[in-house]
């Protein structure tokens, strides 16, 4: 039994060790600004198309589904309100983070994993740079900056998707939809909607980097790390989301 637990406990310990080092490196030099901007471009700008598409369609689908349910109570007019609340609180942050996890946790795991198996990580250490400082911290900082921004874009496009359905199919006026969507939002929704992706960014970046740095066993190992990174990051986004929502609901 103890032997069975040893592996997972060790992994958790190593993961938090990596987290601590990556965060500590933010506050001390050397800083690799070029790498941070490069990663922002890769993670942020690179994820725009999928974030735009998922945002738009999830908003549109929400409007379709909710209008159906709301029509039973004769409250189709509330569609904008519900779309806006569920998007900013939940769907925007979670879907965006899941998309970025699928795209970038896997990317980080495979990139760092390939570097690990071809001894580039060892070479980096041997040649005077800390791989956590040079590889992990820039990815963490970049993700933490761009994920909330991507979420804002996804939220807006989701609202726009909802508007297209509300206007074209439900025959609502633009003013009515946008007004109800706007009025429904409170500051706590926005806080929650921006804090979540910020915290999910830690999961996305650190899980991807952790599995990359742990890679052993050649190209096969890189494949394994990539899959694991996406699975673990996605599951942890949901778990963390549950706890964060629990906290915010009580506030």
């Amino acid at each position: 039994m103890l032997d069975l637990l040893k592996g997972p406990v060790l992994s958790v310990q190593e993961f938090f060790g990596l987290t601590a080092k990556a965060v500590r490196n933010i506050f001390r030099g050397p800083h690799y600004l070029d790498d941070i901007f490069l990663q922002m471009d890769v993670i942020g700008f690179g994820s725009l198309p999928i974030v735009i598409l998922t945002g738009f369609f999830s908003g549109a689908v929400m409007a379709l589904q909710l209008s159906k349910a709301l029509s039973t109570y004769g409250a189709v007019g509330k569609t904008g309100e519900l779309v806006s609340i569920s998007l900013t609180r939940e769907l925007g942050p979670v879907l965006t983070s899941l998309m970025v996890a699928g795209r970038n946790s896997s990317g980080m795991a495979s990139e760092l994993g390939s570097m690990k198996v071809t001894e580039q990580i060892d070479a980096m250490r041997a040649l005077g740079t800390d791989p956590i400082q040079k590889l992990v911290t820039p990815r963490l900082v970049a993700t933490a900056v761009v994920l909330p921004l991507l979420t804002v874009i996804a939220d807006f496009l989701g609202l726009f998707g909802g508007f297209v359905i509300a206007y074209a199919l439900l025959k609502m006026t633009a003013a009515h939809y946008w007004n109800s969507a706007w009025q429904a939002l409170e500051y706590s929704d926005i806080t929650q909607g921006l804090l979540k992706p910020f915290l999910f960014a830690f999961v996305v970046a650190l899980v991807g980097c952790y599995f990359g740095m742990q890679t052993t066993g050649g190209t096969q190992g890189v494949g394994r790390s990539t899959t694991r990174a996406v699975v673990v990051a996605s599951v942890w986004i949901f778990v963390l989301d549950f706890f964060l929502t629990r906290i915010f609901v009580n506030l």
């Binding site: 570097m115 001894e119 580039q120 060892d122 070479a123 250490r125 041997a126 005077g128």
Partner: peptide, 19 residues
């Protein structure tokens, strides 16, 4: 260790070049 490693040159098995 970085100070010590600065005085050592190393060639890794496959070259270990940054691709």
């Amino acid at each position: 260790l970085f100070d010590i490693r600065a005085r050592i040159g190393v060639l890794f098995q496959e070259g270990g070049l940054f691709d």
